[in-house]
């Protein structure tokens, strides 16, 4: 069963450790101190936002009918066998046309620092056990890497309902 990065909304403290870990995992050095000492500027592909009192990370959902794949004029955005949607490692190169940025409903595709290609969660950060860097970095278990079925559907609904209450209370 394909695994996804699932979000346990009531656990996020907004520490941004996932963002840092994501950036580090996409650095050449591959570790925090090394990347800093090299002067690298890797960018994160997961984003912690706040809505009212609710903080939560948001990253690519690797949509089943991914609009970014349809939108890509270069043919770079594609789906890998494990379900990962990515614009790297495929047959074609990203050309930074931002069509994917325009259609991603989660706003989790962005440009690189130089504006030369689109960056998104590519799951190129997984360790030997296959767990993504953001999940490993999360100190509270707000991020979980699991098959959707493994992750109790009921729990998700509960969590979301609570989150929703908070959100609606704040607008």
């Amino acid at each position: 069963m394909q695994k996804e990065v699932l979000i346990n909304f009531d656990r996020c403290l907004g520490c941004r450790s996932c963002q840092l870990a994501c950036a580090v995992a996409h650095s050449t050095a591959g570790n925090l101190f090394g990347a800093i000492l090299n002067g690298e500027k890797p960018r994160t592909r997961i984003f912690v936002h706040q809505v009212g009192g609710q903080k939560a990370p948001l990253n690519c959902r690797h949509c089943e009918d991914a609009p970014c794949i349809d939108a890509c004029i270069a043919g770079a955005m594609h789906r890998q066998e494990d379900g990962t949607v990515t614009n790297v490692g495929g047959e074609q190169q990203c050309t930074a046309c931002w069509m994917c940025v325009m259609v991603c409903p989660y706003g989790v595709i962005r440009s690189d620092a130089a504006g030369t290609m689109a960056l998104k969660c590519d799951r190129e950060c997984r360790d030997e056990a296959g767990v993504p860097a953001c999940v490993r970095a999360c100190p509270t278990g707000a991020l979980v890497y699991a098959g959707v079925d493994e992750y109790s559907g009921r729990r998700r609904v509960d969590v979301l309902a609570r989150a929703l209450q908070q959100v609606s209370g704040n607008f």
């Binding site: 520490c15 941004r16 450790s17 963002q19 101190f33 800093i36 500027k41 620092a113 490993r136």
Partner: peptide, 27 residues
Amino acid sequence: PQCGFGELGLCCRNCNMGPCRIDPFGD
């Protein structure tokens, strides 16, 4: 994993406008 902001000394809790932390990668 221990907090990267803390490891780099980039978090500040010295006042209550914060806590604040600085992105070490300029992002």
